[in-house]
Amino acid sequence: MTPLAHNRRSVMLAGLAFVLLGSSAMAADGWPRSFTNADGTTTEIAAQPQRILSTSVTITGTLLAIDAPVVASGSAGNGKFFAQWAPVAEERGVTNAWPAGSVDIEAVYAAQPDLIVVSVTGADSALDQLAEFQAIAPTIVLNYGSQTWQELAGHLGDATGLEEAAAAKVAGFDAYVADAAAKITVPEGTADIISFNGAGQDNPIARAGGVHAALLQSLGFTVEDPNPEWHSQPNQRADFVWAPYEKLVDLTSATTFILSRDNEGAKAFLEDPVLANLPSVKAGQVYGLGANSFRIDFYSATEIVDGIVENFSK
Score class of each variant (00 low, 15 high):
residue 308 I to H: 08
residue 195 S to I: 10
residue 186 V to Y: 13
residue 9 R to T: 12
residue 135 A to E: 11
residue 120 V to F: 03
residue 252 T to A: 12
residue 116 I to A: 11
residue 123 A to P: 04
residue 28 A to T: 03
residue 95 T to M: 05
residue 293 S to C: 05
residue 207 R to T: 01
residue 206 A to Y: 02
residue 202 D to A: 14
residue 115 L to R: 12
residue 50 Q to N: 08
residue 62 T to S: 12
residue 311 N to F: 06
residue 53 L to D: 03
residue 46 A to C: 01
residue 139 T to W: 11
residue 1 M to Q: 11
residue 185 T to G: 06
residue 266 A to D: 02
residue 218 S to A: 15
residue 308 I to N: 05
residue 134 Q to W: 05
residue 13 L to K: 01
residue 109 Y to S: 10
residue 149 W to H: 10
residue 311 N to V: 13
residue 288 G to S: 12
residue 269 F to Y: 10
residue 187 P to I: 08
residue 200 G to R: 15
residue 41 T to V: 07
residue 148 T to V: 09
residue 42 T to G: 10
residue 89 A to G: 04
residue 112 Q to I: 00
residue 45 I to N: 00
residue 121 T to F: 12
residue 65 A to Q: 02
residue 41 T to H: 02
residue 221 F to E: 08
residue 297 D to N: 15
residue 217 Q to T: 13
residue 62 T to I: 08
residue 5 A to L: 13
residue 272 D to N: 15
residue 107 A to F: 13
residue 295 R to H: 11
residue 195 S to C: 03
residue 81 F to M: 11
residue 280 S to K: 06
residue 138 P to G: 05
residue 271 E to Q: 14
residue 191 A to D: 06
residue 313 S to M: 02
residue 64 L to K: 00
residue 64 L to T: 00
residue 243 A to E: 12
residue 127 L to H: 02
residue 163 E to F: 10
residue 184 I to K: 13
residue 298 F to I: 11
residue 260 S to L: 06
residue 262 D to W: 09
residue 119 S to V: 05
residue 263 N to Y: 10
residue 131 A to K: 14
residue 242 W to R: 07
residue 139 T to F: 15
residue 233 Q to Y: 10
residue 310 E to M: 09
residue 152 L to P: 07
residue 214 A to P: 01
residue 151 E to P: 03
residue 273 P to T: 14
residue 69 P to E: 07
residue 164 E to Q: 13
residue 24 S to Q: 13
residue 57 V to T: 07
residue 169 K to Q: 15
residue 63 L to M: 11
residue 226 P to T: 00
residue 252 T to D: 11
residue 232 S to I: 03
residue 95 T to E: 01
residue 93 G to R: 02
residue 79 G to M: 06
residue 29 D to Y: 12
residue 138 P to M: 09
residue 198 G to D: 04
residue 82 F to Y: 14
residue 168 A to D: 15
residue 31 W to L: 07
residue 11 V to Y: 08
residue 106 E to C: 02
residue 164 E to Y: 01
residue 229 E to M: 04
